[in-house]
Design a protein around this nucleic acid. Structure first.
Lengths: 341, 341
DNA sequence: TTGAAAGCGCTAACAT
DNA sequence: ATGTTAGCGCTTTCAA
């Protein structure tokens, strides 16, 4: 069952040696046109395909790249993966996707599994739970090409691709302020994540620019990044039932934004006195009620870029020592008639 | 760079032969406890991991399974993939995800690529464009284990896992009828897809049961499955600007349902005189405006089940000749105060 | 109990 | 121009 033809079979069938067949197939210069034609035609006829496993063993590479994200059921990541694929396919690489589900343990398993010669390089957006980077560091030190995207870490020196999280946060916060909103709460992902910190900075900077004091009580974090709805609901509850109810909530992550909308809807089914703004790559934002003013990341482009850099690392003849940190601009989308630019 | 330890290195280091090391590591019965301990401890210490490529070449299997879906940026599929993963990981298989983007050409490439010894078996939901099944048939005939899920085809005899599309359609159509809605249009995916046909049947059966004539003018298909928004918009336009405007539209696919909501919102921003009901696995349906009454498929469970069946096929010692077609029930969710069960 | 050697499919020196 | 051989990392006869 499922016993594919090998080069040996062809050699036997055609009466050539294995190496002649091999060379003919790769169009080697030493082989006569005549022989080439015979071999090629026959290979064509029986639809011969070389065994990629054998090739991998020989060449010590797999022509596949691993992608580790928290989950694919997330607009930002599925779009980013489409970007990854678009480049990878063109350059002849497979894409192996693994989900960490924001779990440290799962991330470690995935990294080890993929890095253990299943892939030639790794594209990773860190899990929300991860604070110990030993597993990544180990692979990096062994020479495995790694490119970070979205959720990056300072501890490792390699290419990094992120959205301009600071500016995106700044812009949306300022937009709210310019529309007369002063009491802006902030709902963030796990606090140690790079995206959380960067987005927090942008938010604070906008407040500061406009002379609004930063209020610690207006800040809530969701350590599971919105993957546990209860956590989001509890955080939103804290915000809306606090002493000084905010006029708006800025939500700093994709999954969290819709979670926040659901929670708000639950607490406040009728009144729409709290504006929600946040990072989201949903392609149906215009359908949401309550409406979501959103910051959109160039996910597809980020995936492309990160993959391009990764493949450069993989294919580089010499050890790469100069690394790039690319930052791509976000875009703001109003979905609410009460707001204007 | 990135040169991992091999069994040979261990043998040299410890002064044993390669085969002794190999056997010690696999806990072979012929090896003395003492030698085993030495080898195991050392392997542990240097964190030795066997090269999976070499194992694959030897065992003629890869311990990975391929999944081909139209896209991961789709609630149903990303949930199904989570189900696939949950089983695959437990049984020690990698999951390689490929997207067809509903393109026939892409599907053919993906199938050939994966089937060509990159995976031990294939899980597939057919692309909307595909009407020629030669590429699948070829692999099936070569003995590659294949399990279909969601979008299945009759032409190949193997395990199949689907939602009860007929019943789901029937239920939601009947719900509308029982709520006094008689003029129900139907917006479907590509007409040759199994899901499209089954859902159409359920719709027709409900109409018939309640003595409502089937009206050809109330039917529109989207050959690209909602992946091209213009197509959806045009179809919806046809429906709502026809001679006899429907009171409701039943949309028979996940991606199409939100597309339809967008289109309706565009044509009818204020009046909400057209109810939309349809298949959707969105986890934020309660946020949609206009509201979407939806049929939800047990995506995760379908993924689990399909994977379980696939792994059974892969690991079966004997050729399997008895195949199962599993059908799982859908669930109806009202998100509209004007409707009741 | 351990080692030598063949073989999985392929490529690439090294012969001829 | 073509064939022989070794080797990629591992398992597994077969010999010792």
């Amino acid at each position: 069952m499922f016993k594919p033809t090998t080069i040996k079979d062809i050699a036997k069938e055609l009466g050539f040696s294995i190496s002649t067949v091999s060379r003919a197939l790769r169009d080697g210069y030493e082989i006569s046109e005549e022989t080439k034609k015979i071999v090629m035609d026959y290979a064509q006829k029986i639809n011969y395909k070389p065994n990629p496993i054998a090739l991998s063993l020989k060449e010590r590479r797999t022509y596949s790249i691993g992608v580790i994200v928290c989950e694919v059921a997330n607009n930002f990541f599925s779009q980013a993966i489409n970007g990854v694929e678009s480049i990878a396919y063109d350059k002849g690489y497979h894409v192996i996707i693994s989900q960490s589900h924001d779990s440290f343990e799962r991330e470690v398993i995935n990294v080890k599994h993929l890095a253990n010669r299943s892939v030639d390089g790794l594209l990773i957006s860190m899990a929300a739970e991860t604070t110990d980077y030993a597993h990544i560091l180990e692979m990096h030190n062994k020479g495995l090409p790694i490119v970070f995207f979205d959720r990056v870490i300072d501890e490792i020196n390699t290419h990094k691709v992120t959205a301009n999280n600071f500016q995106g946060s700044f812009d949306v916060t300022e937009l709210l302020i310019k529309n007369g909103v002063k009491k802006i709460a902030h709902l963030g992902n796990a606090p140690h994540l790079s995206i959380t910190k960067e987005r927090m900075s942008g938010y604070k900077a906008a407040l500061e620019k406009h002379g609004i004091a930063f209020n610690e009580e207006y800040v809530q974090y969701c350590h599971h990044g919105g993957r546990k709805y209860d956590e989001v609901e509890e955080a939103v509850k804290q915000l809306v039932t606090g002493r000084d109810k905010p006029e708006a909530i800025f939500v700093s992550s994709d999954r969290l934004s819709v979670g926040c909308l659901s929670a708000i809807k639950k607490f406040n089914p009728l009144s729409k006195d709290i504006l929600i703004a946040g990072f989201s790559n949903s392609d149906v934002v215009e359908l949401f009620d309550p409406s979501l003013t959103c910051v959109r990341q160039p996910a597809f482009e980020m995936g492309r870029l990160a993959t391009d850099l990764l493949i450069q690392l993989i294919e580089s003849k010499y050890p790469v020592t100069e690394f790039q940190s690319k930052t791509l601009n976000t875009k703001l989308y109003l979905n609410n008639k009460t707001l204007s630019m």
